[in-house]
Amino acid sequence: MTDTDSTVSTARTADEQRRIVRERYAAIATDSSGCCDEGGTDGRATDEMARKLGYDDGEIGDVAGDANLGLGCGNPQAIADLEEGETVLDLGSGAGFDCFLAADAVGPQGRVVGVDMTPEMVEKARENAAENDADHVSFRLGEIEHLPVADGTVDVVISNCVVNLSPDKPQVFREAFRALRPGGRIAISDVVQTAEFPPEITRDPESLAACVAGASTVDALETMLEEAGFEAIDIRPKDDSDEFVREWADDYDPSDYLVSASIEARKPN
């Protein structure tokens, strides 16, 4: 751990944190009992949540099956500027929604790889890949701190509200840097901490798994990215994200402590 990581990491071991997150998302994959959404897997509810996150009706309608779980805190497609033929890596790919949208953008000559540490999510994503005829999309089981991807083989790394769940965020960015080709870039939607969490939130496993207690500050994220080797770092909070962030907990308002943001950076040529 480093001083730049979230304070939640000091309250529990990395293995404990991963177990909490894995169990939560396994339940979402198998029981469809959503987190960070507003009503489980009801199609209308997840579609409405996707709109709040920044996806348009065309993107929502383009993906078949139940890849859209109503999860996330933004739309990485909106900042990724994907081009035909590129190779895309999605950190924490879930049921595959962002992967399938990326596959449309990069075309059949491109490639998309999704990595998720939850076996149930990987299985669900592979089923969705078959339903979407996405032959150039693959899903791999693995931790985002230890990516099952070769060095220098990726053009773009995307992620949607997953890095905050990691117990070792600096290692996530080092791994993303390793996987990227020279000149490659990251385009991540995630949450950033805007106020200090009270102890009851940092100790609460539900707050961790619900994309709250693991958030880092903008300054801390900039330091992590710089130390990993990235340049052209641009972290932009989204002031209107309180519309959906406040729905992530019942007994307090998470938007008092965090906001969604777009995180972009580039690996030097």
Rank of each mutant, 00 (worst) to 15 (best):
D3K: 13
D5E: 15
S6N: 04
T7L: 15
A11L: 14
R12L: 06
R12Y: 09
R12V: 10
A14L: 06
D15S: 15
R18P: 02
R19W: 12
R24C: 01
A26H: 04
A26P: 02
A29H: 06
S32N: 15
C35L: 00
D37E: 14
T41N: 13
D42F: 10
G43L: 10
R44Y: 08
K52D: 12
D66W: 09
A67L: 13
N68L: 13
N68R: 12
L71T: 10
L71V: 11
C73D: 12
C73M: 11
G74S: 10
N75Y: 06
N75A: 10
N75W: 03
A78F: 09
I79E: 04
D81P: 06
D81Y: 04
E83A: 12
E83Y: 06
E86N: 08
T87K: 07
L89A: 09
L89E: 10
G92A: 03
G96S: 09
L101S: 02
L101E: 10
A102M: 11
A103F: 08
V106N: 07
G107L: 00
V112P: 12
M117L: 14
P119H: 06
E120P: 05
M121P: 04
M121Y: 05
K124F: 11
K124N: 10
A129V: 04
A129N: 01
A129K: 11
E131C: 07
H136F: 05
G142Q: 10
E143P: 01
I144Y: 01
H146D: 15
P148C: 00
A150S: 15
G152V: 05
V154S: 05
S159V: 03
S159I: 01
S159R: 02
V162W: 03
V162A: 09
L165Y: 09
P170M: 05
E175V: 00
R178F: 07
A179E: 06
A179R: 01
R181D: 07
P182V: 02
G183M: 08
G184E: 01
I186L: 11
I188F: 13
I188V: 15
D190Y: 05
A195I: 07
E196W: 04
E200I: 09
D204I: 05
P205H: 00
E206D: 13
A209T: 01
S216K: 02
L221M: 14
E222D: 13
T223V: 14
L225E: 11
L225G: 11
E226W: 05
E227F: 07
G229E: 13
F230S: 00
F230G: 00
A232N: 15
A232Q: 15
D234W: 01
D234L: 01
I235M: 01
R236K: 11
R236P: 05
F244C: 09
V245Y: 07
R246Q: 14
R246N: 08
R246V: 11
E247M: 00
E247P: 05
D250A: 07
L258D: 03
V259N: 02
S262A: 13
S262V: 07
S262E: 15
E264D: 01
A265R: 05
